[in-house]
C-alpha cells in the first residue's frame, strides 16, 4: 500500500460563493438558535444594551452642553462702561465711532438715565437710589462683535482694543463662565471615554461568558462535529455569529434607550430654554455616534465571542 514520500493533498473547498453562502446560512441559524431562547437572549442583550447606552447617552449630553456653550461663546457681547464725565451726546458719538469698526456688528447705547431706570427696576434698590443727589451710573455701550469674530480669545482681543478709547473706562466680556463650562465639559468628556472603555470591557466579558456557557452546553455536539471532520473554523463560526448578534441586538436596545431618554428630556429642556429665551433644542443622535453604536456593538460581541471560543474550543477533543 502506498508509502509515497509526498502525501496526497486534501481536497479543500475554496469557492468564495460556497463560503459566502455558508456564512449567510450560519449567521441565520445562529439567530434562529438565539430566538429559541428568547428570554435569556433578551436579558443578555438588554445588559449589553444598557452598557452601551450609558456612554452613548453621556456622550450625547456632553455634546449638547458643549454645543450650547459654543453658541453662547459666539454671541458674547462686550459691555463698554464710559467715563462718568462723558455726556449723552458724546456717548452717542463714541457709539457711532465704534460701530464703524469692521470687527463690530451691532451696537446699542444705554445712556445714564436709561441705566438708572433699568437699575431701579431690576435691582430692587430703587429707594436707595432716590437718596443719592446725582446719578452714579455710567453710560454703557453694548457691542456685539461681527459674525466672524468667534471664540473667547478673539472677543477678548476686541475688548482689549476697545479699552484703548479715551472715553471708555472698562470693557468687560463676561465669558469666564463659558470658559469654565468648557473646561467642565472637557473633563466630563474624558470621564465618558474612561467609562466607555470600562463598559466596553464589561460587554466583552458578558458576551464572552455567555458564549462560554453555550460552548459548555454544546460540548457533545462539538465533539461529534469534530469526529465527522468539522474544521475549527466551522465549529467556531456559529459562536462568533452569536456574539455578533448579541452585540447588534444590544446596540439596538441601547439606541432605543438613548432615544427614549432624549424624548423624556426634551420637554423639560424646552421649558428651561424657554425661560432663558433661548431657542436651544436637544440634538438628536448624530450619524457618527449612531454608526459607532451599531458597528461597535457587533464588533464588541465578536471580540467577546472570539475570546471565549479561543480559550474553550481547543479544550474540547473527542475521545
Amino acid at each position: 500500500m502506498a508509502r509515497r514520500d509526498k502525501a496526497r493533498k486534501f481536497k479543500r473547498n475554496r469557492s468564495p460563493i460556497t463560503w459566502l453562502l455558508r456564512h449567510a446560512q450560519m449567521s441565520l441559524s445562529s439567530l434562529g438558535r438565539l430566538s429559541r431562547n428568547p428570554i435569556s437572549t433578551a436579558m443578555t442583550a438588554a445588559v449589553i444594551g444598557i452598557a452601551l447606552a450609558l456612554p452613548s447617552g453621556l456622550h450625547l449630553l456632553v455634546d449638547n452642553v458643549s454645543q450650547l456653550s459654543s453658541s453662547w461663546d459666539g454671541s458674547a457681547s462686550i459691555s463698554l462702561f464710559l467715563n462718568e464725565n462723558v455726556n449723552d451726546e458724546q456717548a452717542d458719538t463714541v457709539r457711532r465711532q465704534i460701530a464703524l469698526r469692521p470687527d463690530v456688528g451691532e451696537t446699542r447705547l444705554i445712556d445714564r438715565d436709561q441705566a438708572l431706570e433699568e437699575f431701579r427696576r431690576l435691582s430692587g434698590f430703587g429707594e436707595a437710589i432716590e437718596l443719592l443727589d446725582h446719578n452714579p451710573l455710567p453710560a454703557v455701550v453694548l457691542v456685539r462683535p461681527q459674525e466672524r469674530i468667534r471664540g473667547a480669545e478673539a472677543v477678548a482681543r476686541l475688548a482689549e482694543e476697545l479699552q484703548g478709547y479715551l472715553e471708555i473706562d472698562l470693557a468687560q466680556v463676561d465669558l469666564q463662565w463659558v470658559a469654565r463650562l468648557g473646561a467642565i465639559t472637557g473633563t466630563i468628556e474624558r470621564g465618558v471615554i474612561v467609562l466607555a472603555a470600562l463598559l466596553a470591557g464589561a460587554v466583552l466579558l458578558i458576551v464572552g461568558n455567555t458564549i462560554r456557557l453555550d460552548i459548555q452546553n454544546r460540548h457533545s455536539e462539538i465533539e461529534i462535529v469534530k469526529l465527522v471532520g468539522g474544521t475549527d473554523a466551522f465549529i467556531r463560526r456559529p459562536f462568533l455569529y452569536e456574539g455578533i448578534w448579541y452585540g447588534l441586538i444590544g446596540a439596538v436596545i441601547g439606541l432605543v434607550l438613548v432615544l427614549g431618554a432624549l424624548y423624556l428630556l426634551d420637554g423639560p429642556v424646552q421649558r428651561l430654554a424657554g425661560l432663558y429665551e433661548s431657542d436651544f433644542a436637544l440634538a438628536v443622535i448624530d450619524p457618527a455616534s449612531l454608526l459607532g453604536l451599531l458597528l461597535g456593538g457587533p464588533l464588541l460581541g465578536l471580540a467577546g465571542a472570539w475570546l471565549a471560543v479561543g480559550r474553550h474550543l481547543a479544550q474540547i477533543q473527542p475521545d
Binding site: 496526497r8 469526529l227 465527522v228
Partner: peptide, 19 residues
C-alpha cells in the same frame, strides 16, 4: 499510515480533512 498518509506527519489543522 492511512490512505497513503503518514499520520505522524499530519498537522493538527489537517485532522478534520483526514477524518
Amino acid at each position: 499510515w492511512v490512505n497513503g498518509r503518514n499520520l505522524n506527519k499530519l498537522r493538527s489543522r489537517d485532522i478534520p480533512y483526514h477524518r
